[in-house]
Amino acid sequence: MSVAGFIVIAFMLTTYVLLDGYDLGVAVIAPLVARTDRERSVAMASIGPFWNGNEVWLIAAGAALFALFPAAYAASFSGFYLPFVIVLWLLMFRGIALELREHLSSELWHQFWDVAFCASSVLLIFIFGLALGNLLRGVPVNPAGYFQGTFAFLLNPYAALVGCFAVATLAMHGAAFASMRIEGELGARALELLGQIWWAVLVFYVAVTALTIAMRTPLTAWWLIALPALSLLALLGARYNAQKLRPTATFAMSCVFVAVLLAASAATIFPYLLPGFPARSSGISIFQPPPSAVALSCALVVTLVGIVAVSIYSPIVWRRMAGKIRVE
């Protein structure tokens, strides 16, 4: 049951990255592809009805972690205290930017929120990547089950590299979404930009994968090789489809790429939720401290029923909002 809990959390976080990832990504590429005020409005409108629902996956994953593994929830959120509060501020600021931009038609107002929106999104992705990097590297959990994540510890080169990788990857993901959602020249420009970002993604991918494998050697299971290989295939697939001007297939490939990478990360740290640092020292796993069976089963039922319900009604609603939008 603990393993099922781990899978549920990993699934919810992956869904969060796939969904909120594209709207964060659109924010990153918006200043690069949208040249006029009107085009920037369209770029924002392309994610307007979705971002809020997407962000709920992060809240839900946090709540599920709280209910399933309270010790890990308590240690990670208090351990990453300042970075986490900064994430909260950025999330708020970004939400404000998205919601407020269209309320006034002043160009200065738009320019301010455009910059705020892009900058907060880039920083957010970077910090999320930084957090993932530190999870893969491990954190110094003390015997009482807590740790103190100082900036000196968290801002290590490996984690920073994962942060940059995250920015490039989600920029690509956002470009794929934008090209799928927006008609005409703006959509085409996004697809063109994707081809350029792709090289950065590839370089970071090779560097991060090599470092991670070096850090975690000896590799304990075949899927720690298979998953990175599969993600490489998806990355190549994204480029192939982008060159064939097939936005939907490109976006699908980008989704596979991100999902497989996150699955590989989850597989790397399993069965730990917070691996110890240095490597192989004890952290907080899904078995230690032992979770209570009633709480685990209750939270599992809640999250699974919720996920099934959301998977049924979200697509129905999305279909009503589907289709392309255009610059008028």
Binding site: A63, A64, A67, Y73, A295, G306
Partner: peptide
């Protein structure tokens, strides 16, 4: 958290 987390998870 094993208790308080439940209604919060339900809320999400």
């Amino acid at each position: 958290g094993a208790v308080v987390g439940q209604p919060l998870a339900m809320e999400s």
